[in-house]
Design a protein around this nucleic acid. Structure first.
Lengths: 148, 148
DNA sequence: CATAATAGTTTAGGGGGTGAACTAAATCAA
DNA sequence: TTGATTTAGTTCACCCCCTAAACTATTATG
């Protein structure tokens, strides 16, 4: 089996699978202590895709509906998400962010931005950032989780 | 704030933080159903660094000793890990893989290899693999979790 | 109208993690 | 040497994540 590919696989595992978890744990910010990455992701998805149903959220996050149900309860208890009435389907619940929820999303963007900036400062060339973007765009497309 | 960096941060988040979890969940293989990524990682670390103590494992995996204790119990119950006597320090427990444990490590390498191969087949140029390796080597160094 | 499909919730069970309390062994120091 | 302190690991309480199956309520369909 191709030696080069072997190294790629190993790096993929070390950086993506094992490394990511460490990075997340090492971000030292109250916002990340208070909300899990999955909760933040849920807020971001709602922020981006406007009023959205639980079911759709489950598809986008790639988990079962029950996982969303659970998160929803926690986040709406904290006043970050609110329900909107649906005229059409009485079963569906449309979710949207409260102002506080939107604030958290913006704040979390800043936190990650600052963390990465500090992590990368002086380590990366302008040109490497371009390469990084190109490669990660590609990765995103390849991994293109089928749930769209 | 720099638009290019903003995109890099967003891609980092989408691919690394959110994407990785999806990839892991979507690997459809009995081995990955039976053992968690953290369990696999623990086996690999023991495989690579020979007889090793719990404490050292906690450092390498970047978690508390109690998390390791828990995993250790599960994995040794399944006969993948065994204890070696230490002559020097009676408190320390040196861990090593059983033959079955070593088998699992090799098998798990194959599973990931095959999964990625199938995922990337026809999507990636030879040259891109080189770029990928270069960039991930760099990422690995930058993220260089301090626990060595 | 009765049956089937769909949206969400709930519950049980297993994975991950932290932090503090606790045992036992090793070290240090008076 | 002995008493205090540090160190290696375990255990426990508590939280998050997830799946899968059972269950309600509403909508669609034959």
């Amino acid at each position: 089996m191709n030696k080069q590919i072997r190294e790629a696989v190993e790096l993929f595992e070390e950086v993506m699978i094992f490394g990511t978890a460490r990075v997340i744990r090492s971000v030292d910010n109250p916002l990340w202590k208070e909300y899990s990455p999955q909760q933040i992701q849920m807020l971001k998805i709602i922020h981006k895709y406007g009023p959205i149903t639980s079911g759709r959220l489950a598809d986008v996050q790639g988990v079962h509906k029950s996982a969303i149900s659970n998160r929803l309860k926690k986040l709406s208890d904290q006043g970050l998400i609110q329900m909107v009435k649906t005229e059409t389907d009485q079963r569906a619940k449309l979710l949207e962010l409260t102002e506080e929820g939107a604030r958290i999303v913006l704040q979390s963007d800043r936190v990650l931005y600052e963390y990465l900036e500090q992590l990368l400062s002086g380590q990366v060339e302008e040109q490497e950032v371009e390469q990084f973007i190109a490669m990660f765009r590609k990765l995103k497309n390849i991994l293109r989780w089928d749930g769209e």
